[in-house]
Design a protein around this nucleic acid. Structure first.
Lengths: 211, 211
DNA sequence: ACCAACTTGGTAGTGACTACCACCAAGGTA
DNA sequence: TACCTTGGTGGTAGTCACTACCAAGTTGGT
């Protein structure tokens, strides 16, 4: 049975992947992204440079690898289609952020929150990472459009969905930058809500039915 | 006096820069971006690879170098501050696009329009270019925020301006992609207006006072 | 015991990009 | 005219991300 086999192998694979990424993030924050070579990461993780490239196609992916996008897409697919696009997407983004940053107070930074902040700071301050991260929004945008479940047949509908999704993601990114500037002291969902309100109007994320 | 001197030198410099970029764009569209090396570009332009790097810090800049951003910022600075942020930015984007694509009919593609399309297609299809181009929106976003002339003192105001600007730019990018998909047959300003309307509501770009 | 798939490591490249240095042409000054 | 500064250019050598191509060990299933 390839089932147990693959899951067991997949577990080992995911484990080494996590290990390599952890060492990479540590070195990057310590010495800086550009000043750290892939060989450095490999040595710190106790593997060969080749192995690093097998798990992460590019050096940037050592920082950018995550799967928070799936979270957002699921929430959108589960949302009610009666609301306007930006409201559906905005609410999904806020809720996903709330799930990610956990429920703790702003003062006690959980380990998860610290991890997110470290990655975020790297992404913002390093041009190469910032660029690739913004480009990753492309894939996320497409995932959101698919999750909206609109008629894929009408190109005009698809276009409108893409425009709404990209604008929401841009507002999200602005909120993330702001959150990192505040060292995560503020509540991320609130910051996102403010960004969305500034772009789309206060009413779009206001308390209403379905939430 | 270094005045006449520098302008004369600057002219020559700008000339070779334009020449190198023209050869680069030709080769990129002919053979593909990744399949063309900087040395190839240098040979085609009749200069050394070093000279290429002196004029364009990175290979991506051979495609992305332009200064349309200044156009947008000027229009925003000249717009009336009584309108909401996204309206001011949106109108500026639409007007700038109209100025760039010229007044000709959609059928007769002017040389300028063709040039814009070629660059756009390269930017969209090549991941490295797409990423860096999106990152360039960062600088443009900051220029827009500065041009809005809002209180730079209040961080909340600045944050709102950033959120609005980034969302507008994202919608613009979606419109540009759509325009390239249509091979420039549609009118770019209209496409941008549709994208903005999809994201921010139909009323935001509607005909009104000040325009 | 045996086979097959998976994972890892090594080697030798390509290509973008960066020092560091030398050369040459142009413009201003003694 | 001779000198000197400035700015554009070219060469060399090197670093680093990344990619084939190939060899070896390990693990899971028969």
């Amino acid at each position: 049975m390839p089932d147990q086999n693959s899951t067991l192998r997949a577990q080992r694979r995911a484990e080494t992947q996590r290990m390599i990424q952890a060492h990479a993030l540590r070195l990057f924050t310590e010495r800086g992204y550009d000043a750290t070579t892939v060989t450095d990461v490999a040595e710190a993780a106790g593997v060969s440079p080749m192995t690093v490239y097998r798990h992460f196609p590019t050096k940037e992916d050592l920082v950018l690898f995550d799967q928070n996008g799936r979270l957002v897409a699921e929430r959108i697919a589960a949302s009610s289609a009666v609301h306007p696009l930006v409201r559906r997407i905005g609410i999904a983004l806020i809720d996903s952020a709330a799930a990610l940053t956990g429920g703790g107070h702003a003062d006690d930074l959980t380990a998860n929150r610290r991890f997110l902040l470290a990655r975020l700071r790297l992404m913002i301050s390093t041009p190469a990472l910032r660029a690739k991260h913004l480009d990753n929004h492309y894939a996320l945008q497409q995932a959101i459009v698919d999750a909206l479940g609109d008629d894929a047949t009408d190109p005009e509908d698809a276009f409108r969905a893409r425009a709404a999704a990209s604008a929401c993601l841009a507002a999200l990114h602005t909120a993330l930058v702001r959150w990192a500037e505040d060292d995560g002291r503020t509540e991320l969902p609130e910051v996102i809500a403010k960004a969305l309100a500034a772009a789309f109007g206060d009413d779009i994320v206001g308390t209403g039915p379905d939430r």
